[in-house]
Amino acid sequence: MYRRFGKRSFDVIAAALLLAALVPVMIGLALLVRLALGRPVLFRQTRAGRDGVPFTLLKFRSLRDGPGDDAARMTRTGRALRAVALDELPQLVNVLRGEMSLVGPRPLPLDYLPRFTARQAQRLTVRPGLAGLAQAAGRNAVPWEARLELDARYAEAPPRLTRDVWLLLRCAALAATARGATAPGHATMPALQTKKTI
């Protein structure tokens, strides 16, 4: 029942309640981003959804415009937002639209798809999520091979409400302490480079 109806119902109800409760916070964050970085306040990027179907991911903007990599364009405000995952809050709208779930593998850029092994591509059989098994294991501090294997494990296991709630709470606790916000030696997470066998 949870696989067929419950997970989506949980997503819609919980995302709607969270959005309603967080409206003041999101307005404050939008003003902060507007003052620190200017327009646009939201960052939009095409990501791979369930079965690889493209959708537009929403985030609060954390990088300034201009040349250079993420580390060069990252502001103090952006670093703070990313550390505690507040930049991800607009994705609650993606959840309501049905493009994402509260729990699932994090959505990745479309150009990553050809780099997946058959095992890693199993992550595409479920909706991507705000929180996930890989994020609960350490967010961006988890290296790519381990991260993609955890995504595949989540996708292949029957969905359970208790597990999803635990993953949400675990990811929220990690975000609250800013643990795992960056990979060692990087501003966020390095790009997935090549197809590897796990």
Results as ranks from 00 to 15, higher is better:
residue 140 N to L: 02
residue 101 S to V: 07
residue 95 V to H: 08
residue 183 A to F: 15
residue 183 A to E: 08
residue 20 A to E: 01
residue 67 P to I: 01
residue 15 A to L: 04
residue 89 L to W: 00
residue 22 L to K: 00
residue 87 D to Q: 12
residue 94 N to H: 01
residue 7 K to Q: 13
residue 107 P to Q: 10
residue 115 R to V: 03
residue 128 P to K: 08
residue 48 A to F: 05
residue 84 V to N: 07
residue 8 R to T: 11
residue 45 Q to E: 12
residue 22 L to Q: 01
residue 170 R to K: 14
residue 81 L to I: 12
residue 94 N to S: 11
residue 30 A to F: 03
residue 195 K to C: 04
residue 53 V to F: 00
residue 106 R to E: 10
residue 111 D to S: 06
residue 87 D to K: 10
residue 88 E to P: 09
residue 195 K to D: 00
residue 176 A to N: 02
residue 99 E to P: 03
residue 180 G to S: 11
residue 32 L to K: 06
residue 166 W to Q: 15
residue 140 N to Q: 05
residue 39 R to P: 00
residue 79 R to N: 12
residue 50 R to A: 06
residue 98 G to D: 13
residue 74 M to C: 02
residue 113 L to V: 14
residue 136 A to G: 12
residue 88 E to C: 06
residue 70 D to I: 07
residue 96 L to P: 14
residue 152 A to Q: 09
residue 143 P to E: 08
residue 30 A to Y: 02
residue 16 A to I: 04
residue 81 L to M: 14
residue 64 R to M: 06
residue 160 R to W: 13
residue 30 A to S: 13
residue 125 T to D: 15
residue 73 R to L: 03
residue 71 A to R: 15
residue 25 V to N: 07
residue 127 R to S: 13
residue 186 H to E: 15
residue 16 A to Y: 05
residue 79 R to W: 07
residue 136 A to S: 11
residue 126 V to H: 12
residue 91 Q to H: 06
residue 31 L to H: 00
residue 107 P to C: 09
residue 174 L to E: 09
residue 93 V to L: 15
residue 166 W to V: 10
residue 179 R to D: 12
residue 196 K to C: 12
residue 115 R to Y: 03
residue 6 G to Y: 10
residue 139 R to E: 11
residue 115 R to I: 01
residue 48 A to Y: 05
residue 121 A to H: 12
residue 91 Q to A: 10
residue 168 L to M: 14
residue 163 R to G: 08
residue 42 L to K: 07
residue 4 R to W: 13
residue 130 L to C: 08
residue 130 L to E: 04
residue 114 P to Q: 08
residue 74 M to A: 12
residue 31 L to Q: 01
residue 172 A to D: 04
residue 94 N to V: 00
residue 157 A to V: 09
residue 10 F to W: 14
residue 160 R to Y: 09
residue 21 A to H: 02
residue 126 V to M: 10
residue 36 A to G: 12
residue 88 E to D: 13
residue 187 A to E: 03
residue 36 A to V: 02
residue 117 T to Y: 01
residue 77 T to C: 14
residue 170 R to E: 09
residue 110 L to A: 04
residue 117 T to D: 15
residue 26 M to H: 09
residue 140 N to G: 02
residue 119 R to W: 15
residue 125 T to F: 02
residue 44 R to E: 03
residue 44 R to G: 00
residue 71 A to D: 10
residue 139 R to I: 08
residue 162 T to E: 10
residue 102 L to K: 07
residue 195 K to S: 06
residue 170 R to A: 14
residue 154 Y to I: 01
residue 32 L to Y: 05
residue 173 A to C: 04
residue 90 P to T: 01
residue 80 A to N: 11
